[in-house]
């Protein structure tokens, strides 16, 4: 699986390269600035791009912008955004194109390297992985109107875990229920959000997006 890494701090870039190589990823390119990253992402079309939000030249959200621009150029290009902080605003922007294949994680999640590697694979496969911190802040919101207000507390729990990128099996293990029960909850969520037609992966993305926009 080919990966492009965009990270301006050498130590972190080097660490990411070693971590991913150790987990069997092939590093197509590892660059340190936004313009280089855009070239690498659109030119090499990797299986997944791992992008730091804050990068040169302006040291603001250059990485995030490159990620969005690259996905505009190569629709559905899987991107996992890493950052020292997570913001709901940025999560919304990343998911706005509804194409899936998006991850948004805090940098320190790489400490759990196995979980991180699996998140990279999920994103590459078109899944949506949001950092638990974003999700927990979503959970804190009071929803009084809109489709989400119709969800049962259990369904909201399932949706939150879905947003973190967990599979039905993982959700079932987490909530101590059977996978079948989780499927039932997921179906309920899709119905209530009016997402019954499309395929399962895309429905999961749309459900998470609806969650973010609530």
């Amino acid at each position: 699986m080919r990966v492009v890494i965009g990270e301006d701090l050498f130590l972190l870039r080097d660490g990411l390269v070693r971590l991913l190589e150790a987990h069997g990823f092939e590093i197509a390119a590892a660059v340190g600035s936004a313009p280089e990253l855009l070239t690498a992402l659109t030119g090499l079309k990797p299986d997944v791009g791992i992008v730091d939000v804050r990068m040169p030249p302006s040291h603001t959200d250059d990485g995030l912008r490159v990620a969005i621009e690259a996905r505009r150029a190569v629709p559905g290009l899987p991107i996992l955004v890493l950052s020292q902080y997570v913001e709901q605003l940025y999560a919304r922007e990343l998911l706005a194109d509804q194409a899936g294949g998006v991850g948004y994680l805090l940098k320190d999640r790489v400490f759990s390297d196995a979980a991180f590697a699996s998140a990279v694979r999920d994103v590459a496969a078109g899944g949506t992985v949001l950092d638990p911190e974003v999700v927990s802040r979503l959970m804190a919101r009071r929803v009084r109107s809109g489709p989400l207000a119709a969800l049962t507390p259990r369904e909201r729990e399932v949706l939150a875990l879905m947003a973190e990128g967990r599979s039905n099996a993982a959700i079932a293990a987490r909530l101590f229920v059977t996978e079948k029960a989780v499927s039932k909850h997921a179906a309920g969520i899709f119905t209530r959000l009016g997402l019954s037609q499309s395929d399962d992966d895309n429905r999961r993305v749309l459900a998470v997006l609806a969650y973010l926009n609530s």
């Binding site: 804050r54 603001t60 020292q84 913001e87 605003l89």
Partner: peptide, 30 residues
């Protein structure tokens, strides 16, 4: 991370006041 947020919020540095206020709104429970 929490300390940095209290010194100068990253979204404010990245995007300016309006977007930072929008982000505040998103982080509010109501």
């Amino acid at each position: 991370r929490d300390l940095v947020r209290g010194i100068y919020p990253p979204v404010l540095a990245d995007r300016g006041l309006v977007e930072a206020v929008r982000n505040l709104a998103l982080d509010t429970v109501m």
